[in-house]
Amino acid sequence: MTNERTAALSATGVSIWLDDLSRTRIESGQLQQLIDTVNVVGVTTNPTIFQNAIGSGIGYGDRIAECAKRGLDAAQTITELTTADVADACDIFAGVYAATAGQDGRVSIEVEPGLARDTAGTIAQAKELWAKVDRENAMIKIPATVEGLEAITATIAAGISVNVTLIFSLERYRQVINAYLTGIEQARAAGVDISKIHSVASFFVSRVDTEIDARLTAIGTPEALELKSQAGVANARLAYEVYEQSFASERARMLIGLGANAQRPLWASTGVKDPALPDTLYVTELAAPNTVNTMPEATLNALADHGEVDGDAVSGSYVEANQVLNAVDAQGIDYVEVTEKLELEGLSKFVASWDDLLNTVTGALQAAK
């Protein structure tokens, strides 16, 4: 039986992707169970997720021992472990991929976070990971840094599907869409089948509230406090307006007419950080057609248990969303400063998780010798 609450979200046009992956989840059959029971149609990963999975020590011992026997170092071992997980998950989602003509059934794997400021290095590793996973329904995650924009274009141009991650600002989102469309144009000029290229743009939600709410609390006036926990949803709703406008442009419509796919908005960081907020806030308030919501398991469980989905909550909400961000600005909170800080913090967190993962795997390799 499919859960009626997750089915209602899917019927609204939202693709539910799980923000987690591990060897245990694959081998236990739990990933397949989520497909069958709660409408999960994709998976995203990042360095923190793999640090939690591999760092747990469960399910990876034999594979690490094999890598040690082959003389692989920690970075090479991580590539072996993570690409194997992603390839196996892609196989589990093969039916979804076929049924949705490639839109869903996707499994994302991220380039090393230390490459976020290295355009050439990102392009090279994106191609390496794509070849290593060797599944059409994989997606390569590339951070939306300034340096990442050119890498996104080049990767798309090579016929590789891309999940653009760590987007916080509307201006950067516009640049990401341009990078995608430019990549599609280059792919078409090179004779690549553009109908096979898919992309999502991961717009982060809860972290915007966490940062802005802290500043509103510090201001402490009734007007400031009344604005708490509104900016994240407002920012994402305005991102959806950017999506609608951008893909209604003559440039985008021409490419779509030639077989290209629209780059869908993906709501990321949808786990609620403030326990005082409804635990499905960033799911139900951002339900909209042609979007993806990537959820940690706790948020997915909350949705399945008590989430109230009431159709499209985004279209037509743009005037009110603008009013929220204008009111935040009137409190002296600088939107550009906030989004730039969040990008830097996001990269730093992934680098820290990657370093932890390297240390964990280094220790495991030594123990296996």
Rank of each mutant, 00 (worst) to 15 (best):
D134T: 05
R135E: 03
R135S: 03
E136R: 14
E136L: 12
E136I: 08
A138P: 02
M139P: 01
M139I: 10
I140D: 01
I140N: 02
P143C: 05
A144L: 00
A144R: 00
T145D: 04
V146Y: 07
V146G: 12
E147M: 06
G148C: 03
L149F: 05
L149V: 01
E150A: 15
A151G: 07
A151Q: 06
I152W: 04
I152E: 00
T153A: 08
T153D: 05
A154Y: 00
I156F: 07
I156P: 02
A157P: 01
A158F: 11
G159K: 03
S161Q: 00
V162L: 06
V162Q: 01
V162K: 05
N163W: 02
N163M: 06
N163A: 09
N163F: 05
T165I: 03
T165V: 06
I167C: 05
I167M: 07
F168V: 04
F168N: 01
S169H: 00
S169I: 03
L170C: 05
E171A: 15
E171F: 08
R174D: 07
R174C: 03
Q175D: 14
Q175C: 04
V176H: 03
A179T: 00
A179P: 00
Y180N: 04
G183R: 02
I184C: 07
E185Y: 06
R188K: 15
R188H: 14
R188Y: 09
A189L: 12
A190C: 13
G191D: 10
V192E: 00
D193F: 12
D193I: 14
D193N: 15
I194A: 02
S195V: 10
S195L: 10
K196D: 08
I197P: 00
S199V: 07
S199W: 07
S199C: 15
A201P: 05
A201L: 04
A201V: 05
F203Q: 07
F204V: 07
F204R: 08
V205D: 03
R207M: 13
D209C: 09
T210E: 13
E211C: 11
I212W: 01
D213Q: 06
D213R: 01
A214I: 12
A214G: 13
A214N: 12
R215H: 12
A218V: 14
A218L: 13
I219F: 10
I219H: 13
G220F: 13
T221Q: 12
P222Y: 09
A224E: 09
A224T: 11
L225E: 14
E226N: 15
L227I: 13
L227R: 09
L227K: 11
L227W: 02
K228T: 11
K228H: 10
S229W: 12
S229Q: 14
S229Y: 11
G232Y: 09
G232E: 09
G232N: 10
A234C: 13
A234N: 12
A236G: 10
A236M: 11
A236I: 10
R237P: 08
L238I: 10
L238A: 09
